[in-house]
Design a protein around this nucleic acid. Structure first.
Length: 1127
RNA sequence: GGGGGAGUAGCUCAGCGGUUAGAGCAGGCGUCUUAUACACGCCACGUCGAAGGUUCGAAUCCUUCCUCCCCUACCA
């Protein structure tokens, strides 16, 4: 017997029950065991940063991951089920700093790097545990670590990283030092999620870098890079994605007095006053015109095209020269008295001779902004650096890592660059160099992590060369050219990948073509220790390929690393002998760009090094998916680059990208905007199946607008399904119906041949659904799968069930009733399997009741069943589906007609005529009865010739005749609309003085007003609107019945309660009398009496055609009627 | 700054040469229903961002402009 089902389910409570059920029965472990050894489907998880609780935007991607994994599991495919956590890098550092109240790198060093790194590891474990719990709540099936164990490990790490501890692994307990256990997480002996801080991950990155070095692609660059003063690190081009934001800066115009032209000065504009301290040149455009102007006592030089924007107040033009004539003029710099400037100029530029400020030519100079004369500080700007390098100018670098002016910069020394604008301006004013200051708003790069505006700083960083860009199309490159350029090799790999949506392919290629070399170093603490050994003695450098090599080559400090993971500070202690000169050399202090950590995952997690056979089996991944904004230059890129270097092949076959999640108002979720929804809150208020349904239905390449209203909409849809299920269970319980064994064996067409056409129809639709959804999911098209399912639920509810409702509640034909139950049961049980990957909880709840609770010999979880399409395939009957579709449309047409004629459906009609030209199907007669029943018509008459019921129209086909007729078109169209045409014998049409060939027009039929409606297939329906007294009386009886049913509900009666009924019919009594038996049956009335209504009964009035009628009822005394209760 | 996309009903969007511009949601009215949750029917003259142009015909193609979004960038 099925367990009772409420029509108002508590989905959230139910989800918690299902989670407990899965835990208790170890359902996921059984699924893995069941599929072990099956054909492989390799999914590679993009690691989620374990730095905060997961958000609803993560839940979107994780829903996709779970849907596809569950789907492939239902096809019997073996999978790895490994989640990943991204662990290293600035994300974590910034939060740990914040927790500790740190504001600079000095704070970290004073606190101790070892302790800081340990806190970073602990933070990762904290949020890995948290995200694990949340993911489990989402129904995301993965080989999760026990979150409590992760937290225990975190606490042990905090207590004593060197202590021994034991973890339970899939192959038995593993004992090691706590720190090393943390480093071994995700390895086969421990199982569970992979962590990018793992020993294996870091070691394989060393191998990758060593390989880059072996090929000569790794180098140290000396350049001005964008730099975050707060984080104390360079920002690579890869990280600039979300780094630009509008910012207001001082737009400062200053005077550079000319040494050889007394009283004259260059006017120079800058938005970064601090860089004036390091000015070495002023650049003019050699092709631009420059003018000398007088303003009061002052004489300035500036670009002719800039005088309006740059000058304040009246001026007089005294001279006009080409920029090239200004080149070589000497001027006095704004900060010449600073020791650092004097020293730098004395040392000179590339030539070594002492240097003076001078005007130089630069073809990049424009006149759109500023004064047409550009202040050049090669130590403070990327383009300045390039220019300075080409001209051999001296370079002044005023800032240290923390963005503080270094010694030698006088009154600015020790001052933070972010607070330097005002003192610089004061200094200029004091020295008479100030001209003008006004704020300017412009796009300026900011640190992607902490939001601090970046400065440009002269630094040494390490790069992986992407190779040359050739000035020819890709298909004209030679083999040698490609072999010499990593970027083109990656492009070749990209060619072999399926990109969804397809524009991803173009975008990735575009990025690859335009990207700069990959800056991999970060002057930070928590991250991959770059295995680069840069020898100060001889200037050569070496890259160590792994921890084993380091051990073998260590000449000192190994004992300090022993027992620790290869992180700072312990790894910094090790020195090796320089291969070139033999001197002991230590590691550079830099850590790695975090995308190295995620990019190596196709190798590290698949045991590339330790188990090549395993790697061969699972590489490349069949599928990866992440949100695409930003990932083209991050995870996608780093995986592609690393796989290309190591193997020159694609690390994944299909990549599925999806867009961005916003709040319901279309803006990014933001706590202070009130549109943010936390994952936990969403899960416990809307339920995760509702969330998953929203995600599944969203178009992946569109942004999703997530909110409570959207959730209500999704929930309503799920409740339609739930209500079908609740209906089924309610009536099956009332009827005492249970499914037989045949309910779980694939039904054959002959088994269902005797059932009514609508039964066979819904089963055919189900079979089609399973096939279609399989096709969609196999092609990574989840939204289309969801909408197909949506359509099916709709027709199951509003057509199949609506039409067949009575069959479930009537005992008069038990065979038919059982057929209805069996059909609906099979349909629901099958639908649940098709939906299982998308809605794991709702479907499991239904499966438990529909299949498991009644003892059917089937898997104990819907997620252990196989994809149902193959076993259902034989039930497909396209011809029946077509015929039924026609009937559905006919019903729609009749409803429209009734509505137009003011005849409610409750009022029976004598007959309708229907024309079905050319339709023949063995079930047609039965379907016509379905129509008659649905629209409450006594008799359906099929006619072949609809000509008397319709009028003809002609529709000229404009695309065909447009060119030919030209200006005559308006007249032709008007004639067609007016019906002023003649159909000639050969089928051509004459109108408005023109004859159109048969293939130039379309002949249509349309209803004569007030009678019928034609449909596109030539389907025509007409109703007989004439009402006889008998029809009216029957309609009245139905009206009374409706009133009684409403009254039952008002009185709070149960579905099966029997009643005593009393009617005060008045003059209508005679006419309605013959139909009262039927009313009694439908309303479960044991007795029907007439006359004045008894006091104390529930009462109501109802209008019928014959006047006003009053009804009253009460619950009948139990046992008053021997007949068994039936709905 | 460069490149791309988009501006259509209150909201989300479809239509992308064919004369009467559609759908879903929200709203209004009605119908059906002891599955009370729905569903169905009807209701949209909206300057199709603005202005020009091409055409028999423009939301659709072209030009200019306005607004927004995305990608991209070393601009002072």
């Amino acid at each position: 017997m099925f367990a009772p089902v409420t029509s108002k389910p508590d989905l959230v409570a139910q989800e918690h029950e299902i989670l407990a059920l899965w835990r208790e029965r170890r359902t996921f472990a059984r699924l893995r065991a069941q599929n072990a050894g099956g054909p492989r489907w390799s999914f590679l998880d993009g690691p989620i940063t374990a730095n905060n609780p997961m958000g609803v935007h993560h839940a979107w991607g994780r829903t996709y991951k779970d849907v596809f994994q569950r789907f492939h599991a239902m096809r019997g495919e073996d999978q790895r089920w490994q989640n990943g956590f991204d662990c290293q890098g600035l994300w974590v550092e910034v939060n740990v700093e914040r927790d500790l109240g740190f504001t600079s790198k000095r704070d970290i060093e004073e606190h101790g790097i070892a302790e800081f790194v340990r806190l970073c590891k602990q933070r990762v474990l904290t949020f890995a545990a948290r995200q694990t719990e949340q993911s489990i709540r989402l129904g995301y099936w993965m080989d999760w670590n026990d979150p409590d164990e992760l937290l225990r490990l975190r606490d042990l790490l905090g207590a004593d990283p060197a202590a021994e501890a034991t973890l339970a692994g899939p192959r038995g307990p593993v004992t090691d030092r706590v720190e090393m256990l943390v480093g071994r997480l995700g390895m086969p002996e421990l199982g569970g999620s992979y962590f990018t801080f793992s020993n294996e991950n870091n070691d394989l990155i060393w191998g990758f870098l060593a390989e880059c070095h072996r090929r000569g692609w790794l180098y140290k660059g000396h350049d001005t890079m964008p730099w975050c003063a707060r984080c104390g690190t360079g920002i690579s081009q890869h990280e600039m994605t979300e780094g630009y934001a509008d910012r207001t800066d001082p737009g400062l115009t200053v005077r550079f007095p000319l040494l050889d032209r007394p009283g004259e000065a260059l006017l120079v504009w800058t938005t970064t006053p601090w860089t004036l301290t390091s000015n070495v040149a002023a650049a003019v455009g050699p092709g631009l015109r420059y003018v000398k102007v007088r303003q009061g006592d002052s004489i300035f030089w500036l670009g002719r095209g800039t005088v309006q924007q740059a000058l304040v107040g009246p001026f007089e033009i005294l001279d006009d020269r080409a920029g090239s004539e200004l080149v070589g003029w000497r001027y006095r710099g704004p900060f010449d008295e600073l020791p650092a400037v004097r020293a730098g100029f004395a040392a000179g530029g590339a030539g070594g001779a002492p240097y003076e400020h001078v005007v130089v030519a630069w073809d990049q100079v424009g006149e759109d902004e500023g004064t047409g004369i550009v202040h050049i500080a090669p130590g403070c700007g990327a383009e300045d650096f390039a220019l300075g390098k080409s001209l051999g100018l001296p370079m002044l670098a005023p800032l240290d890592e923390g963005g503080t002016f270094i010694d030698g910069f006088g009154f600015l020394a020790g001052r933070d660059v972010r607070d330097s604008a005002e003192p610089v301006v004061e200094h200029l004013k004091h020295h008479g160099l100030f001209y003008r200051l006004e704020p300017i708003v412009h796009r300026y790069p900011h640190c992607w992590r902490c939001g601090t505006p970046l400065v440009f700083r002269l630094v040494d960083e390490w790069f992986v060369s992407m190779g040359p860009v050739y000035d020819v199309p890709r298909d004209q490159l030679t083999r040698q050219q490609v072999d010499a350029s990593l970027r083109y090799q990656i492009m070749e790999v990209v060619d072999g990948i399926r990109w969804l949506p397809s524009f991803g392919y173009e975008r990735e290629l575009d990025w690859l073509l335009n990207m700069h070399d990959w800056m991999i170093s970060k002057k930070r603490y928590w991250g991959l220790a770059l295995p680069i050994y840069d020898c100060a003695a001889c200037g050569s450098f070496d890259v160590v390929s792994g921890r084993e090599e380091l051990r073998a080559r260590a000449v000192e400090g190994w004992e300090q690393l022993e027992g620790h993971t290869s992180h700072r500070p312990y790894v910094d202690a090790v020195r090796i002998a320089c291969r070139a000169c033999g001197a002991p050399v230590g590691r550079i202090p830099d850590v790695g760009n975090p995308w190295l950590d995620a990019g190596i995952v196709p190798f590290s997690t698949l045991h590339y090094r330790e188990d090549p056979a395993y790697w061969q089996e699972w590489f490349p991944a069949d599928f990866v998916t992440e949100s695409f904004p930003g990932q083209f230059r991050n995870w996608f890129y780093s995986m592609l680059a690393m796989s290309t270097v190591l193997r020159r092949e694609a690390p994944f076959r299909t990549i599925f990208g999806y867009a961005t999640l916003f709040g319901e108002d279309g803006r990014p979720m933001h706590k202070s905007w009130g549109n943010a929804i936390e994952f936990d809150e969403a899960a416990e208020r809307m339920g995760v199946d509702v969330m998953r349904w929203m995600y599944a239905k969203a178009r992946p390449d569109d942004n999703i607008l997530f909110g409570w209203h959207a959730a209500d909409e999704a929930r309503r849809e799920l409740l339609v399904l739930w209500n079908v299920y609740a209906f089924f269970v309610t009536y099956a319980r009332l009827a005492g119906w249970s499914p037989g064994v045949e309910a779980v064996s694939p039904p054959t067409p002959s088994q269902v041949a005797g059932r009514p056409p609508l039964d066979r129809w819904i089963l055919s639709r189900l079979a089609g659904l399973a096939a279609r959804v399989e096709d969609r999911l196999a092609n990574y098209d989840p939204d289309s799968a969801a909408s197909v399912i949506s359509g099916f639920i709709d027709e199951l509810s509003t057509w199949y069930l609506r039409r067949n409702r009575k069959r479930f509640s009537r005992p008069d034909d038990p065979a038919d009733r059982d057929a209805a139950f069996a059909t609906l049961h099979l349909t629901l049980a099958g639908l649940v399997r098709v939906l299982a990957p998308l809605l794991p909880f709702l479907t499991e709840a239904m499966h438990q009741n529909l299949v498991v609770a009644v003892g059917l010999p089937a898997p104990e979880s819907v997620h252990l069943t196989r994809w149902p399409a193959p076993e259902l395939a034989a039930l497909r009957d396209p011809a029946l589906e077509d015929a039924t579709g026609l009937a559905q449309r006919a019903v729609d047409l009749v409803r429209t007609l009734r509505s137009q004629a003011g005849l409610r459906t409750r009022q029976p009609l004598a007959r309708l005529w229907i024309a079905l030209p050319g339709v023949a199907h063995p079930d047609l007669d039965a379907l016509l009865e379905v129509i008659a029943d649905e629209v409450n018509v006594k008799d359906v008459v099929r006619i072949d010739d609809e000509s008397e019921l319709v009028e003809r129209r002609v529709k000229p086909l404009l695309p065909k005749i447009g060119r030919k007729l030209g200006g005559a078109i308006p007249a032709v169209m008007a004639a067609a609309r007016a019906g002023a045409f003649e159909i000639l014998a050969d089928g051509s049409v004459s109108l408005a003085g023109v004859v159109l060939a048969p293939d130039e027009v379309e002949l249509l039929v349309s209803p004569r007003p007030g009678t019928a409606v034609a449909h596109d297939d030539g389907l025509v329906v007409v109703i007989d609107t004439e009402l006889t007294d008998a029809l009216r009386a029957e309609g009245d009886a139905r009206e009374i019945q409706r009133a009684v049913q409403d009254l039952r509900r008002e009185a709070g009666l149960d579905l099966a309660d029997r009643i005593d009924l009393c009617l005060d019919l008045g003059p209508a009594a005679t006419a309605v009398g013959p139909y009262l038996d039927a009313v009694a049956t439908e309303t479960l009335a044991d007795s029907v009496t007439s006359g004045p209504l008894p006091a104390g009964w529930s009462q109501a009035g109802v209008k019928i055609s014959g006047g006003e009628v009053a009804v009253a009822l009460r619950r009948a005394a139990p046992g008053g009627q021997p007949e068994a209760a039936h709905g």
